[in-house]
């Protein structure tokens, strides 16, 4: 009987001692942050801890850093569960390399484009179109548009504009 009466008290004591052992949210937060700071890839992740639930937020460069953040938080003492709101940054689009037409097709296309300009001489070397001769000012933009669309390396315009 005595034991039975003591039971609630024991439970209470057990509960208290359990609460006593439980790390404080602020301490958990500090440990998770420390752990995340060890890797530059996860160092920018922000941490919030509420009743042992760690919520991670921020942006990292790749999925590996995203899962590593969660793994580190999960492994931290006192963390009951992890809400991983860390996002992966959109990859920076590497600019596509400039396409430059090879000399043979370029020479043919340049010949086609300059056919109607008898006063213009065009030569192609290493992707560079060199223009010599004369042209009317009004015709110049049209010729340049045509030549620029052929994807040359460069248009070296030495034309005398009249």
């Amino acid at each position: 009987m005595k034991m039975l009466r003591l039971l609630p008290a024991l439970v209470l004591v057990a509960g208290l001692s359990f609460t006593g052992c439980k790390p404080k949210d602020s301490d958990i937060k500090a440990s998770v942050e420390k752990s995340l700071k060890e890797n530059p890839a996860t160092s920018s992740v922000m941490v919030m801890v509420n009743d042992g639930v760690a919520t991670l937020s921020g942006e990292v460069a790749d999925a590996a850093a995203q899962s590593e953040s969660a793994a580190k938080a999960t492994a931290t003492k006192g963390v009951k569960s992890v809400v991983n709101n860390v996002t992966v940054a959109a990859p920076v689009m590497a600019p596509a390399p400039v396409t430059i037409t090879a000399d043979d097709p370029l020479t043919n296309s340049v010949r086609d484009a300059t056919k109607d300009y008898p006063t213009v001489t065009a030569t192609v070397a290493d992707g560079v179109i060199t223009l010599n001769g004369t042209i009317a000012k009004a015709s110049l933009p049209k010729l340049m548009m045509a030549l620029n669309s052929l994807q040359p390396k460069k248009v070296d315009n030495k034309l005398t504009v009249k």
Binding site: V155, D156, N157
Partner: peptide, 15 residues
Amino acid sequence: GEIDPNFAGGDVVMN
């Protein structure tokens, strides 16, 4: 044409 009159600079390929 305003920036490079007569497109003589040879520093742009605009396609």
